[in-house]
């Protein structure tokens, strides 16, 4: 990779006044956040706070009602080669006729571009990534014959194969065994130490403090964003999880019902 030509390094992710609505019902209001490079960010908030929506909208998978998102100073469609994505495990059909290797190879597709076939070098990368998550012995297994934790590792291996600078991960810890969970944590740390930026949707408040160095607290709007030590306070958590926001969701309901 050649060095960046710009004099200043743009931040990996910059979100400005982002508002997102599902059908008519707003789920995120005016999010403003700039994530500096090399951070391991946990996105925390109660159910329905819009955590997944935030990362999907950041990647342009959901249309924004207003606001904009820049990835490394560019709109997403120009920078998508530098972005890795781990969707929720439930989002795919695990009966799909592909094996573990096929799925990890998909991580290389973005680099290949349209119409080009994966090469032996891509296979080597995929194999290395599988090894990293200790799934190499399962390379030729049909994906439906894996446990939940193993499926999640495959998704992580696919994200590793993308060799990105910015990663979005949607609940990578949900429904996995303890061994996988700690393996994922180690992996995330390692990626962070290599200067990658990671945004991870996480629902377990108890572990959030030890897993992430930065937290983004969300409840339909941005409650706080900053180093874990600073924002993991009783007051801010109260603001995120407390009942004071009911009016916001009530208004959203009303808007949703309007023609």
């Amino acid at each position: 990779m050649t060095a960046a030509v710009t004099s200043e390094n743009p931040p990996p992710l910059e979100i400005h006044d982002l508002t997102v609505a599902y059908y008519k019902k707003p789920v995120l209001y005016g999010i403003d956040v700039t994530v500096p490079a090399g951070k391991l960010v946990g996105i925390i908030g109660p159910n329905g706070a819009g955590k997944s929506t935030l990362i999907k909208a950041a990647m342009g998978l959901l249309p924004a009602s207003s606001g904009w998102v820049k990835i490394f100073g560019e709109p997403f469609h120009k920078a998508c080669g530098r972005v890795g994505y781990v969707p929720q495990r439930e989002s795919v059909d695990w009966d799909f006729p592909v094996n573990v290797m096929d799925v990890v190879l998909m991580g290389r597709y973005g680099r290949l571009g349209l119409f080009r076939r994966p090469t032996a070098a891509d296979r080597d990368v995929a194999r290395a990534c599988l090894d990293k998550v200790k799934m190499l012995p399962f390379a030729s297994r049909q994906i439906g014959n894996l446990s939940g934790g193993q499926q999640q590792r495959v998704f992580l291996a696919r994200a590793l194969a993308q060799e990105s600078d910015l990663y979005f991960m949607d609940e990578p810890f949900s429904g996995v065994d303890a061994a996988t969970e700690s393996a994922i944590v180690v992996l995330l740390q390692e990626l962070k130490d290599r200067g990658k930026t990671l945004l991870v949707v996480h629902h377990d408040l108890a572990t959030a403090r030890e897993y992430f160095d930065t937290l983004l607290l969300l409840n339909m709007r941005l409650v706080a964003f900053g180093p874990t030590a600073e924002v993991f306070t009783h007051e801010i958590l109260q603001k995120t999880y407390g009942g004071r926001l009911t009016i916001l969701s009530e208004v959203a309901e009303v808007v949703g019902r309007q023609p």
């Binding site: 059908y23 008519k24 209001y29 249309p63 207003s66 023609p259």
Partner: peptide, 30 residues
């Protein structure tokens, strides 16, 4: 009357924003 496409189009036209199936939300930050 409750869900017509035409009303939605017209609303969207007057709001001047929004993609298919979504309508711009009122107000920005709360």
């Amino acid at each position: 009357p409750s869900d017509g496409l035409v009303w939605r189009w017209r609303r969207r036209g007057s709001d001047g924003s929004g993609e298919e199936g979504t309508v711009a939300s009122p107000g920005g930050k709360v």
